[in-house]
């Protein structure tokens, strides 16, 4: 599991220029104030970029914040949930939650950051059923575990796959031998080399295959 680590320089921030496409629906200053009143220090920085509010939340309270947003403030629709590998020393993984208040026509984005050593975030599936598969995808791709998720299996990769491919240190072409290809003849051994053809292996035509013993 110990993979090579290559560091890439961070992009310079682009600054807070005005977004000509910004909508009034993303201005939710009053909702942020209401959250601060209830949760106090669990609500961290609030960033307004391009007319959109992003609220940083303490990871342990994210499910409570979501429940309050849904039940008291009308944000009843979880549009998206996903993870980011920022590839930094501190706060490496980020999980974002895009919520919509359908009645009030408002949008809010919540973010939590977790460390590489303990990438654990409480699950919000108890609040939003829709988070189920998003959290599974996030777990599959980044290895962030969602505590309290009823069925945290891999979403895309095979269940016995050992890595989390969207992590930055994962090589683009995968790890040879981790994803077997089918056998070259019926009943034969699995092809462990993903570039078998490039190394000269040529699957045989069916009439050249060994006779079936079954």
């Amino acid at each position: 599991m110990a993979l090579k680590f290559h560091f890439t320089p961070a992009d310079t921030p682009r600054g807070g220029e005005d977004n000509p496409h910004a909508k009034a629906s993303t201005e939710v200053a009053d909702t942020v104030l209401a959250l601060r009143e209830v949760f106090g220090n669990a609500i961290g920085d609030v960033v307004v970029y391009a007319g959109e509010h992003t609220v940083w939340v303490e990871p342990a309270r994210i499910a409570d914040v979501c429940r309050h947003l849904k039940e008291s403030l009308g944000f009843n629709y979880l549009v998206d949930l996903g993870g980011v590998d920022r590839f930094t020393e501190e706060g490496r993984f980020e999980v974002y939650y895009n919520l919509v208040n359908v009645e009030g026509q408002k949008r809010i984005r919540l973010k939590v950051r977790v460390e590489e050593e303990s990438p654990q975030v409480p699950s919000v599936t108890g609040v939003f059923k829709a988070a189920d598969w998003n959290e599974r995808e996030c777990f599959d791709m980044l290895g962030i575990t969602f505590e309290g998720h009823q069925d945290l299996r891999r979403m895309y990769m095979p269940e016995d796959f050992a890595y989390h491919p969207q992590r930055k240190e994962f090589p683009l072409l995968g790890i040879p031998g981790s994803l077997p290809l089918p056998s070259q003849t019926p009943g034969g051994p699995l092809t462990m080399d993903p570039f078998a053809a490039a190394r000269g292996s040529k699957p045989v035509k069916s009439y050249q295959e060994p006779q079936s013993t079954q």
Binding site: P176, G177, T185, P189, M192, D193, A196, S201, V204, P210
Partner: peptide, 15 residues
Amino acid sequence: QRLAPPESRPMMMTA
């Protein structure tokens, strides 16, 4: 002829 092994065996690649 059919019981003979296939022309080429896939190379196995491990970690």
